[in-house]
Write a protein that binds this DNA or RNA. Sequence first.
RNA 1: GCCCCGUUCGUCUAGUGGCCUAGGACGUAGCCCUCUCAAGGCUAAAACAGGGGUUCGAGUCCCCUACGGGGCACCA
Length: 504
Amino acid sequence: MTVRTRFAPSPTGYLHIGGVWAALFAWLYARRHGGQFLLRIEDTDTKRTIPGALESLMTSLRWFGIEWDEGPDVGGPYGPYIQTQRKELYQKWANWLIEHEYAYKCFATPEELAEMRAALEAKGDRSGYDRRYRDLPAEKVAELEAAGREYVVRFKMPLEGQTAVPDLLRGDVMFDNSQFTDYVLLKSNGLPTYHLAHVVDDHFMEITHITRGVEWLNTAPIHVNLFKAFGWEMPVFVHLPVILNPSGKGKLSKRHQAFTEDGTEILVRADEFMEGGYLPKAVLNFLANIGWTFGDDVEKFTMAEAIERFDLATVSPAPTKLPYSKLDWLNGQYIQEMEPLELAKAVRPYLEAAGLEVNVEALLLVMPPMRVRLKRFTDAIDFLRFLGEESPLPASATALTHKQLPLESAVAAFREAHTLLAELQPFTLEEISAKLMAIGEKHTTSGKAGPFLGQMRLAVTGQQVSPPLFESVLALGRARVVERLDQILALFEETAPTAGDHHQ
RNA sequence: GCCCCGUUCGUCUAGUGGCCUAGGACGUAGCCCUCUCAAGGCUAAAACAGGGGUUCGAGUCCCCUACGGGGCACCA
């Protein structure tokens, strides 16, 4: 039997990172076994569907490279893959259940239900329904129907005994049937609830492994009994653990505080990872390490490699928090492997979004040393600001001195650097580096270039932190550097007009 | 309140009765390297929630407690 898994989100908003994780595991498992992975849209709560959510969801999934073999847009032999378009199917099987006495029509009005709930709760019963329409005589049912009364279809849960939910990660989980009531399968608007829809769909779509969050474990007995009533073979249940909020309590939710107390940023929506400057393969690698281990103490691997050994059975049932700092590390590792051109292309949109116009050649020149410095593409913004916009001049010339580079030496060194860079031939990294180094060693009291290079960086880029000086100079280009040094020398003039030579 | 699940370094995890003086990774700290920032190398601190069993032997099996999480809709 070919393995068939599915990801079945509701189009109620942006894709959640936990959803990506669940989809990834289902996808990996299907790929591992050469089966199919499908995308199904559970939009039976029409009040909650948000226009555009479906598209955004598919865009996100595709950005990650999680491709479905069957789904709303690609079609497939078991479609349609959008539940509201399968309404008749659910109604047909709801009727089948009624005919075979596994379900019944319940005519309770909202008011009636509210009263019932209150009365039940007063007795400490939170089930919300007392099964009062379960055994209504056929004539009475016909009568109410003839009167045009609205109704829902409820499932006849077993009144006693236990239901075992066979869970791949936990074994048989036992539930007393007495704690359940008769749940709604078909709403009064004719649309199914999750319970009916997913059972019907998973059966007809021939899903072999139901992967879903643990929040479904408690209602799984309904599903198990439904499969039994229909006489359908039960898929394997895999209840995936929740992903917890690292900043506080509870599960990771879309309404969250953006940072934890130690200052790490909490990303939740799939698109936040895209905009945050992460590589999809890094995020996927990161997620694959949550609840599952590649093995051999290996933490960095491709999805192709993961597919070779992925197994749902070894997924941990324990809830976890996302270790975001590990994502940054992984992303940095992948960035280090990028070709300069590739990196330049990846980084540019982020610079532009930050309002920095940087030409590709300049960007390319500075990419080799930048590879090792970026955790996310967005990190490039602060590093390369000087390339994209006029950087502020130091407040005064003293800012360009150093205890090993007093004012007079600084003036002399900057003058020399100015002359040098204005004329240097060829204007290459090797030349710039050798000559600037020499200037530094010559003027510094310690004879080390370091202090001068640091001040030179500040002078040229206006930044305390930048890519290595020589690459920065190269990327800025002779013209801009010389112009910049003109301004720097003027600054020295203001501060110490008598320093250096004597034109005034 | 009732029911269900879970619990190894700060975090993600390895571990399926002896190979565990508990391994890896991120993060943290120190040192080296160094033009800033990084990267890289080396080193360090850091965990079996607690209590009872079972067993020659328990992180590994069982029970209880504690803690964490989830669920109890005509929402999924």
